[in-house]
Amino acid sequence: MPRDSFQDASDEALLVLYANGDPEAARALTLRLTPKVMGHAYRMLGERSEAEDVAQEALIRLWKLAPDWRQGEAKITTWLYRVVANLCTDRLRKTKGVDLDAIPEPEDEAASAVEQIQHKSRLDALQAGLNTLPERQKQAVILRHIEGLSNPEIAEIMEVGVEAVESLTARGKRALANALAGRKEELGYSDG
């Protein structure tokens, strides 16, 4: 299955692909499920490191079960939430004298509405700035600074030399900085 189609693939389809030996399907499913599993575990335990351990254990159990997954019997997310809840309950019971109702609710770490709006404005401004770049510079800047690829990887993708990638990236960054220069204050950036 092409990597682009993973976005539209169901959790079950990705699990079947993983069970048949496709590591990219496992990566896509992990990226999709980890925030849900981690958030559920954190809300139950109130401690990030414990929640990370539970999330990891739950996903390991899913990978071990993958070859025997019976489609149509349960949703993967439903199964995972149940596994996370059981793992969290087990951890809480092992802690002597813990009253589950006495555990405080974790603080909401979500960004405020103002922060979310500002973040969206910044993303929109970045996209508008990227759209002003010549196509090759835009591609090089995106691959290097947004996708995080190395110059040799980008050179292979773009079918150019590493020096050309460095040049395209440098010129693209300068042009992008110029395109966004007058918007610092509007976007909530200051020199101070």
Rank of each mutant, 00 (worst) to 15 (best):
H40R: 12
G46N: 04
R32H: 07
W63I: 04
A26M: 08
L17W: 01
L100V: 10
E52V: 12
D11P: 03
E109P: 10
R27F: 02
A85T: 09
D108A: 07
I76H: 05
E73G: 12
T78S: 09
A41L: 08
S121I: 09
V98T: 09
P67T: 04
G46L: 03
V37T: 09
D90M: 10
A51Q: 01
K120Q: 15
L59M: 14
E109V: 15
R93I: 05
T89N: 09
H119Q: 14
L133Q: 00
A85S: 08
L87N: 04
E47I: 15
V84W: 02
A102I: 06
G21T: 05
T78H: 01
A9D: 06
E115Q: 14
L80H: 02
L33K: 12
T34L: 11
A66P: 10
E24Q: 12
T78R: 02
G39Y: 01
E12A: 10
V83I: 14
E24W: 11
P67Q: 00
T132P: 04
Q7Y: 06
P67A: 05
A51G: 03
K94V: 08
A128L: 08
D99W: 04
V16R: 10
L33Q: 10
A113T: 12
A19T: 10
A85W: 09
D4P: 11
K64L: 13
A66H: 06
E109Y: 15
L14A: 01
R61V: 13
W63A: 02
K64N: 11
I103N: 05
K96Y: 07
I60F: 02
N20F: 09
P104Q: 12
L92T: 05
R91T: 09
T132S: 07
L87D: 03
N86Q: 07
V84T: 13
A28S: 11
T77K: 02
T30I: 13
A85K: 11
P35D: 04
R27S: 11
Q7F: 04
A41F: 09
Q7N: 04
D22C: 12
V98R: 12
I76R: 03
P104G: 10
D4F: 15
L62F: 04
A9L: 14
T34Q: 11
L87G: 00
D11K: 03
P134N: 13
V84A: 00
L14M: 07
A110T: 15
A28R: 02
A9W: 06
R122K: 06
G21R: 06
T34A: 12
S10I: 11
Q56H: 10
P67R: 04
